[in-house]
């Protein structure tokens, strides 16, 4: 008998906060699509609430947040707290400029992975897959 193929991974991609730099997140959206994933693209100026609602309704397997300005230390933990409050256990991946010194802080806070500028498509896809598999 033919069996149902595993469904594609679903990932919510969003920009949290005011920053409007979306070149990186758009490139990543296409990389993930081309790797066969379903990308639920929320776009600019999202809040932790709107992201939580999207993850619930879309039953996403992962969340990718893109940041340009150095907001990761404020916004990353805020996102994790909102997810925890909603009882959602979905890996959070942060993309953008994150200095080396900040990475252990984000790791400790519970961020599943950080993707810096210049990450290749293979790295992006492998990182997302690994984060989903580990969850």
């Amino acid at each position: 008998m033919s069996s149902t193929p595993p469904p594609p991974h679903r990932i919510v991609l969003a920009k949290l906060g005011l920053d409007g730099h979306d070149r990186g997140i758009k490139v990543v959206a296409r990389m993930l699509r081309d790797a066969g994933m379903e990308v639920i693209y929320l776009g600019l100026r999202q809040t932790t609430d709107s992201i939580v609602a999207a993850v619930e309704q879309e039953d996403a397997d992962a969340i990718g947040l893109s940041m340009h300005n150095a907001g990761h230390l404020t916004l990353g933990p805020a996102m994790l707290a909102a997810l925890e409050e909603a009882g959602i256990e979905v890996p959070l991946i942060i993309g953008g400029i994150v200095p080396d010194d900040d990475r252990p802080i984000l790791d400790a806070a519970g961020v599943a992975a950080v993707l810096g500028p210049g990450s290749s498509a293979e790295e992006v896809v492998a990182t997302v897959r690994a984060a989903i598999d580990a969850a």
Partner: peptide
């Protein structure tokens, strides 16, 4: 080609 998709309606 890839089976992937970008779903942008929520925007």
């Amino acid at each position: 080609l890839t089976g992937g998709a970008i779903l942008g309606d929520r925007v």
